[in-house]
């Protein structure tokens, strides 16, 4: 029996008059990769942004390792152990690759740990080491995605929230990125994954939730969902 890592209950989030998330419940156990899939505007990014404190929940609760997150500011949530790789990567364009990574370790005080994580990150992404003194804004899309993942690794978070890591990348690079995501997971980091590419998401995750305009419509094991008619029709293009 593995421990419950993330427990989201009846979460609702709105932007002014628009309610983007209308009471969503889901969970994730330690060591899992869980996917959230859904069409554009379904509310996937909003959920991740609320978990990491960038948006405020209107109602509902988010428990992470038994700790309530909904009232914590974003920087405290990072300290609690959540690393969010945001939609569109959001690397700091006019900082170097290395400076970006060092910002990932912003919450870490001991320089020996920072050094250790930097080495591990460079091992995972040798490309980042080659480019360490290059400005992040000049990297290719794939490299920026690697940097965003590397930055999240540097935080030392136990749970990674990945928002569309395949966005805008060539298939070969997507394959690369997803191989690394699985490696990161095997090394002990749990992952909540958002993906437009539902097939890829279901291949990577053990379980998935399907989000439709702010509500979860289907949930289950990935292998079951891959066979589900509604999923196949709406999200797998079959």
């Amino acid at each position: 029996m593995s421990t419950r890592m993330l427990d989201v209950k009846d979460l609702a989030v709105s932007y002014g008059m628009i309610t983007a998330v209308k009471g969503v419940s889901f969970n994730l156990d330690e060591g899992e990769i869980v996917a959230l899939i859904g069409a554009n505007g379904a509310g996937k990014s909003t959920i991740l942004r609320t978990i990491s404190g960038l948006e405020k929940a209107k109602s509902g609760s988010i428990q992470f390792l038994g700790k309530e997150l909904t009232r914590l500011p974003a920087h405290k949530i990072v300290e609690a152990g959540i690393a969010h790789v945001p939609e569109g990567r959001r690397v700091f364009p006019r900082l170097t690759v290395k400076e970006n990574l060092m910002l990932g370790a912003n919450i870490v005080k001991e320089s020996s740990i920072i050094q250790q994580r930097l080495e591990r990150t460079y091992q995972t992404f040798p490309r980042l080491k080659e480019r360490q003194s290059q400005l992040a804004g000049t990297l290719s899309g794939g490299e920026q995605q690697m940097l965003a993942l590397g930055r999240a690794l540097m935080t030392g978070g136990k749970l990674m929230l990945l928002d569309e890591p395949s966005m805008g990348l060539a298939p070969i690079i997507v394959e690369d990125i997803f191989r690394i995501i699985k490696e990161i997971n095997e090394a002990g980091t749990s992952i909540l994954l958002i993906e437009q590419n539902a097939f890829l998401a279901l291949q990577t995750a053990s379980r998935a939730y399907v989000l439709e305009t702010g509500l979860i419509s289907i949930e289950g094991n990935s292998s079951d969902l891959l066979k589900d008619d509604r999923v196949r029709e709406s999200y797998l293009g079959a």
Binding site: R49, S52, G53, L54, P73, A74, H75, V78, E79, A83, H84, P86, R90, V91, F92, P93, R94, L95, L103, G104, N106, I107, R151, T155
Partner: peptide, 10 residues
């Protein structure tokens, strides 16, 4: 450069 991303760095 990016306040959201900055917060995500703690």
């Amino acid at each position: 450069m990016d306040k959201d991303a900055a917060q995500l760095m703690g």
